[in-house]
Amino acid sequence: MMRAFAAVKRGRPKGAAANDNQKLDPGTAELQMKRAQLARGLDPVASAHPLDLLLAKGWLTTAEQRAGFRYAALYRRVIGRTDVSYGRFYDGLAGTSGRSVTAAMDEEDLAVVEVRFQRAKRDLLRAGLKVVLVTERVSVFGIWPGWIFDAAGQEDGDCHRLRAGLAALNDSFAAHA
């Protein structure tokens, strides 16, 4: 009897795990180069998000960074996704529906999160519409501003607006803790 394919074991060995050596995966060579380029001499780990790099440069305080991430988390839970994904279109073709972030929460939890978000958004709006736009662009959507790579970027008007927005959010979270 003739076989079409030789019996060869393929794939990962059964006992192997994705990260057996307990080291952090540094990513592909391309990703390492991109992180190093974004960090420009700082720790490449700080290039995961614009707020991380701003903190590494000393342009933000830890409290301001945390306020930005907390607001982004509330935004995602109340408003929804902040990244572009076409998976929901394919889910619809398959006859299933995509799960939203809010579907996993009961009504009481969702109401509490919505109140926290609305308070933070109201306090952020008090700082001004331009402040809101810059703060959400960087914190929530993770858009890299051009001024972050300039030597004098800390003096840019949008940097001041971002810091004002993050300070307003930090104050809002501290007042309603």
Rank of each mutant, 00 (worst) to 15 (best):
K34Y: 08
A73G: 04
P44H: 07
L55Q: 11
K57D: 02
N21W: 15
Q32C: 01
L31S: 10
R12F: 06
A46I: 07
R77F: 10
A39V: 05
R70N: 06
L54A: 13
D25F: 12
G15K: 02
P13E: 09
G68S: 03
L24E: 10
R40Q: 15
G15V: 07
L24A: 11
A17V: 14
D43C: 07
N19Q: 11
R12Q: 09
Y75K: 02
A63G: 05
K57Y: 10
R76N: 12
L60Q: 01
R40F: 03
A46F: 09
G68A: 03
W59S: 02
R70I: 01
G68D: 01
F69V: 04
N19Y: 11
A17I: 08
M33D: 12
L53M: 01
T62G: 04
R76S: 10
V45P: 00
A17L: 14
A17G: 15
D25K: 08
T28I: 03
L54W: 10
T61D: 02
A17P: 00
P26T: 03
A18W: 14
G27C: 05
R12C: 06
L54C: 03
K57I: 09
D43P: 01
W59Y: 08
G27T: 06
Q37D: 13
Q65K: 15
Y71C: 02
L53V: 02
L54K: 00
Q65W: 10
A48W: 06
Q37P: 00
E30F: 14
Q65A: 08
K57M: 12
L38M: 10
P13S: 11
G80L: 13
E64S: 04
L51R: 00
L60T: 01
P44M: 09
Q22C: 12
T28Y: 07
D20R: 12
K57C: 06
A29E: 14
P44A: 05
A46D: 04
W59K: 04
A16K: 13
